[in-house]
Design a protein around this nucleic acid. Structure first.
Lengths: 207, 207, 207, 207
DNA sequence: TATGAATGAGCCTTCATTCAT
DNA sequence: AATGAATGAAGGCTCATTCAT
């Protein structure tokens, strides 16, 4: 569960030296862990700070609030999922389409391995009605819309593409979650196979 | 979003007169609403009490704590889902199987209409490690196991029944959620159709 | 140092029973004391709460913040000073004018006995630029303007009425303060005499 | 608002090179500004450090604490006011006395122009009960006592010299403050005239 | 049975001060 | 001599829960 790239921006426009950068990175990683363990509301800044082996004062040097850290992480995920979304190529009933779908699901899982806990927390009831609170939902909407477009492009007519897209994303997200948290007795590959398979078959019938 | 039957048990074993029953019922209903709007942690007793048009003191006459109310609701849902689980008959590639599945999905949606917000909150990270906290997860596990059993009984071998069951439940739950919260532009019937359809095709190929 | 009338309004529009009213009153009185002892910024809610023999939670039932309590007190003083301002009758070189002025100074001292600490805190540097922060300054401005008007009406020309008014208010406020805090070895009557006397002589020459 | 002479003593007894002196001077000036803007308690070291265009670490090379800086400034003002106090010559009903008083008020204003914000902050409630905290009050007391002595020496009997002295100082300080902060629509000369005039007339009758 | 006032532990946030470079 | 990162004690505020009426 390592956070690799995430730029992350300091509260104001300060320039950060290597040390500061490292500290902020530790906080981001700790955020993923703690939000994943307790959820946004129940997570205490104290937990995050302890996980990052730093102090309260330091936390607020880099993030304006607990929520700010969460949004920073959300933005990171949004970027990753945005890239992922755009990377879905043509799908279809044939083996190439199946391979494409499978590769895509595999890449989704990679993002999930890093940011899963953040994504899960998006569903923590109704992140209020602030623009930031809706960010998670927006990312998912965009994600779904793109998939629907691909399904439509593939000429699927036996099923409503929009609804199907939601259903698929739901399935992928939840199952990946169960796999990541080991609530399902199957390894990553197997789960990816099942997902790609089920998706393919739901859309196009048996391969 | 009305809570109809809910057994409802007072904090201790007191006998309740009509008025008390009424008050408790209002609290249960308010609980569903408020937990759905804000999640377990962010929900304030004050919100619930206001929604139920009663007072703090009264709340604690009926429930030992905020969590107690939540568990009461969870138990209600558990009962409902337990019944639902057991009601799933034989499924298979034929039209009878498809009808069975569709009817089952439709019944699931009924429960979801009443208790959706509670079910969603089950996913709020890490309901602690108390037995009650795990109740939600347990209910879902049982639900999934039963479905896996039915899938296995139907002779499906092209796909791992356990994994497939998780995937289906995930899909059903999430999509019903989107439909219930109107995040998906399709009416209840359409969504039920898509779900039953996709499930059937994932498991048995095209109908 | 007793706060008598001050309506004081609860955070929202709650109706208050006798007990609540009494608690709020204790908080207002405690506020005067503590703000007077430590100033607005250095005063801790904890101090106020202890002085009022109540708890943190209770404090926030009645006031949204420390500043809110302070503004409530400021509003009270503003009312009192507003009344006082309007009550200044005709002044002039004769004995009636002198008597009027003396009575007015005496009434000022009464207000000061109750709310002095709040008035002093108004001068705590630049209460920011919020409307509330400026309230204190505004009250004083109005107070001064009214006095200037009376001076002008009395036909004083040897001295700029506006400047003279500021000077008088300054003198009255500070000296009353020193008297109230016993930093000056003279009793209330003596100080009132000196003030009325000095004012009268500054404006109209010796009596 | 420039701090010119200020002895300036480093935290310990270090010798300071030109650069260090410069830095310390910038901190003293920044202190006057910031304390004036926000008061002693609300002023943040961060504000001062930013205003002086230096860093936290540097601040503590020169001053042991925020209060230390404040006391340094207070000591400076004390010196200036001490000189001023001693410079008040004979006053009396005649034109020489009037001229003396006027010149003295003008000199007071000069000090106030430089250190006004510090003097104002002296009134911030209860500078604790430390010797340093009382320094401001002590300076004023001494100032008042000296003036009272001069009044007594001038043979004034119609008014209590001690009380009159306090009243005059209060008037001078506040009015100078209003003039310095432009809360009064009159220029420096005019205010000085009014003050000298009012003082003279209060003590000795019309000139 | 119901109400609303009171309590206080707990969490978020700030900021004076110290430390490492 | 200077910088900026780090620290942690304090203090504001919230909210679950209890109490008195």
């Amino acid at each position: 569960m390592e956070v690799v790239g995430g730029p992350g921006r300091p509260a104001e426009g300060r320039e950060l030296r290597a040390r500061g950068l490292e500290t902020m990175h530790r906080l981001l990683v700790a955020g993923v862990t703690v939000f994943g363990r307790r959820g946004l509301h129940a997570a205490r800044v104290d937990d995050i700070v302890k996980a990052a082996k730093t102090s309260h004062g330091t936390f607020y040097r880099y993030f304006a609030s607990k929520e700010d850290l969460f949004w920073a992480l959300t933005t990171d995920v949004a970027d990753r999922l945005g890239d992922l979304t755009d990377s879905l190529g043509e799908i279809g009933p044939g083996p190439e389409g199946a391979a494409e779908l499978r590769a895509w699901v595999a890449r989704f899982r990679e993002v999930y391995d890093q940011y899963g806990p953040v994504i899960q927390t998006w569903t923590e009831a109704e992140q209020d009605d602030t623009p930031e609170g809706r960010l998670g939902a927006d990312v998912l909407s965009h994600f779904v819309a793109r998939l629907a477009e691909r399904i439509r492009a593939a000429g699927v007519t036996t099923i409503d593409p929009d609804v199907a897209a939601v259903a698929l994303v739901a399935m992928i997200e939840r199952l990946t979650y169960y796999a990541a948290t080991r609530q399902v007795p199957a390894d990553a590959e197997a789960v990816t196979d099942v997902l790609a398979n089920a998706a393919q078959r739901s859309l196009f019938g048996p391969t």
